[in-house]
């Protein structure tokens, strides 16, 4: 495909040149590459090399000492075997799946509802829409520590609100039943703005006359939503969900700061487990930690490929 595009471009450039006279020389290829050189070097040094080191970590038996000296023995896939056999493995996978699916379902549903709501231009709508961005802009540690305190068992304002409705206190962060719910709650809050902004911009691209025609035909607002908004929004929705999936898979800060994956393993996901293995204790298990990271990257990359494939097929339509 890139060949066909190049073939189309070349004659276009030449006609332009000949129209203006033959004086403009075409740039040699190496000049174009000279501008790319910094980013290519950068990608090799600061992306490819760390990824290679991570892969290397996951295939060797590293200890703190051999980490520095660099002579850890090669053990093949033993780290991966160790990870699969670990009693934390399946809980971490299941928590990751629940965390991602539930977070995205709510973020998307709430984001879509808000996008449809803000698509009506009312007074203050753009100001309020901008304010909705706040959770997304705040540093994760700020949101996470604020939610930690709001969900505190004894003095948290959330339990105060529950009590006001006659409900009992919930040990959000300290009981294994609720810790995953608590971090999902905070993560939904953080993710709503992203969904709102992207879906809103998708809605803005739907021509107004479609909505007008629907209302002239006497469609109810639900019918309009169901038969016009939702189908026309499908490409944007798919992109939002795929990107949301990748971003949510990466979430680490919020869980680590709020619960450290605990109590027990009750809110451990693959990211927090990987961090915990590598950095969470005085006796680091870099090898297994890197192995978990590499499992995570495979899932993320698959989603990334889907996203890019989807986006380019949308762009070429």
């Amino acid at each position: 495909m890139s060949n066909t595009r190049a073939a189309i471009r070349v004659p276009r450039v030449e006609t332009q040149v000949s129209a203006r006279g033959p004086r403009v020389p075409r740039l040699p290829r190496f000049i174009a590459w000279a501008y790319l050189a910094p980013v290519v070097i950068y990608l090799i040094a600061f992306y490819a090399y760390p990824l290679y080191r991570n892969l290397d970590l996951s295939l060797r038996d590293y200890t703190v000492r051999s980490f520095v000296s660099g002579d850890a023995p090669f053990i093949g896939l033993d780290n991966f075997r160790e990870v699969f056999a670990d009693p934390t493995f399946w809980p971490a996978v299941i928590h990751t799946a629940i965390f991602v699916v539930v977070s995205i379902a709510f973020q998307y549903a709430i984001g879509l509802a808000l996008a449809v709501f803000f698509n009506n231009n009312f007074r203050l709508s753009s100001t309020l829409r901008a304010l909705f961005l706040v959770p997304w802009l705040l540093p994760m540690i700020v949101s996470a520590s604020t939610w930690s305190w709001m969900l505190n068992s004894d003095s948290g304002v959330v339990n105060t609100a529950l009590n006001a409705f006659g409900l009992p206190d919930i040990n959000w962060l300290t009981s294994p039943t609720w810790s995953l719910v608590a971090v999902i709650l905070a993560n939904i809050w953080i993710g709503i703005p992203f969904n709102l902004v992207i879906l809103y911009s998708g809605l803005q691209n739907i021509p107004d006359n479609l909505f007008e025609a629907a209302s002239l035909d006497g469609a109810s607002s639900w019918q309009t939503f169901r038969h016009i908004t939702l189908p026309l929004l499908r490409p944007v929705s798919a992109i939002t969900l795929l990107l949301g999936f990748v971003y949510t898979l990466k979430v680490f800060d919020i869980i680590w700061i709020m619960t450290r994956g605990g109590p027990g393993n009750s809110s451990t996901t693959l990211s927090t487990w990987s961090y915990e293995l590598g950095f969470g204790s005085l006796l680091p298990h870099f090898g297994p930690g890197a192995a978990v990271g590499n499992l995570l990257i495979i899932v993320a990359m698959l989603c990334g490929l889907l996203y890019i494939k989807f986006q380019s097929s949308e762009a070429s339509r």
């Binding site: 760390p50 991570n54 990211s271 990987s274 590499n294 995570l296």
Partner: peptide, 13 residues
């Protein structure tokens, strides 16, 4: 798309 924890571990070493 690369999760931060993976980059962090690579950078660490």
């Amino acid at each position: 798309m690369i999760p931060g924890i993976i980059m962090a571990m690579g950078f660490y070493s």
